[in-house]
Design a binder for these strands. Sequence first.
DNA 1: CCCTTTATACTAACATGTTAGTTGACGACT
DNA 2: AGTCGTCAACTAACATGTTAGTATAAAGGG
Lengths: 230, 230
Amino acid sequence: MAASSLNKVENLSGSLSQRVYQSLREAILSMQFPPGTVIRKGAICEQLGVSRSPVAEALARLSTEGLVDIIPQSATKVSCFSMDEIREASFLRQALEIAAVEKVTLERTPKQLAALTRNIRMQELLIEDKDFVGFYEADEEFHTMLMNFTGFNGVPQVLESVSLHLTRARMLVLPDEGRPKETVKEHRAILAAIKNQDVDAAREAMKSHIGQLIPRILPLEESHAEYFKP
Amino acid sequence: MAASSLNKVENLSGSLSQRVYQSLREAILSMQFPPGTVIRKGAICEQLGVSRSPVAEALARLSTEGLVDIIPQSATKVSCFSMDEIREASFLRQALEIAAVEKVTLERTPKQLAALTRNIRMQELLIEDKDFVGFYEADEEFHTMLMNFTGFNGVPQVLESVSLHLTRARMLVLPDEGRPKETVKEHRAILAAIKNQDVDAAREAMKSHIGQLIPRILPLEESHAEYFKP
DNA sequence: CCCTTTATACTAACATGTTAGTTGACGACT
DNA sequence: AGTCGTCAACTAACATGTTAGTATAAAGGG
């Protein structure tokens, strides 16, 4: 158990490289591999029972996504946070989510409205049951639904890739007492704007909703200084 | 000359993989490798005088960016256009550029205003001289400047990566007689909004500016059907 | 005692051998 | 003649051997 618990590649699909990639990615995003962790190819090969090729490719991909820093001829580490990167990720996410919600507001179908309403109802139920993990997932789903409703298949992935640092930092944010309820309120405001086809209201509602995240992340720079770049 | 003319890796910097990547990427974006071209690893290795490892890594990266389609155990081709992807790229670019111009509008410094003004002046001079290649570059620079003025270092690269399909398709668009002048007009409108710190005007000006591109690309689906997916 | 130099151990990067899956063509069978 | 099954050739994917650059620590000089 001293060895880190990577998901076995047998449980994943796709090429070996992709499975290794997914396994490492999840370990990084879930903070099982906290920022600064040195990743040794040899160790990964041994743990997953694969050769160096797929591991190298997986790490190269993680590197382009900014999740690991490869120091040439030397080492590769899980990348540390920098508040600049996080702010940038927030900016990008805001840009995308605003554009998406504007488009959806103009084009939404009754079915889509119903699905969003159902999702928010679910969020409320999960809060009542104090199932905060479930709520987190429903929250994510709400945003993913909006992305999907744009009609552009690649948008959810783009959002995910630009939000990586944000997602990882979010793991460290302590669950706040009243926050989930506030979140649902904001979601309701967004949905109301979509229903009314009020583009300006949708934009502002989404802007302020996404804007809530950064203030909650800021304190981490001091409370978890070890995870941040100097 | 029957062999494709890839940039020699000697003229580039970085690791071998990165140089191969850059070389292939440029060949694809410049349409030297048109959509549908089959890329054989062996041939690339021979032409560039490198082994298969860096080529494989380069292709893997191009694959994640959507510039090539790797068919497992079979072949890898330069990816064809699809109007959906192009529309999506336009949507993403619009989202980013709008967010950027809004931020810059609020925070712009006198120096930045001067730089943008200078750039537009340059655009006009280049049109007068009928230097349309130069104009294209100045146009690109205008947008890059806006990205840089957001203060987020990674934004220009994100814009580039989401705009890849757009950039490639743009190569096929025939230069239109009056278009450059119109473009400068639109740039001036954007600049004016930035100067006046009128966020709404900046947003609308940018939205309509980016919106100009799609109508000019649409006809390609028939005039260059061979480059499009069925 | 500290700074510089050098040697060694370790890593990513690269080259190349091997495997396995796919495609297209040929031939047999219907 | 058309269709299905088989086989051969080719490719990406994977494994592994080799190279070269980096960092650490020990040794030598100031």
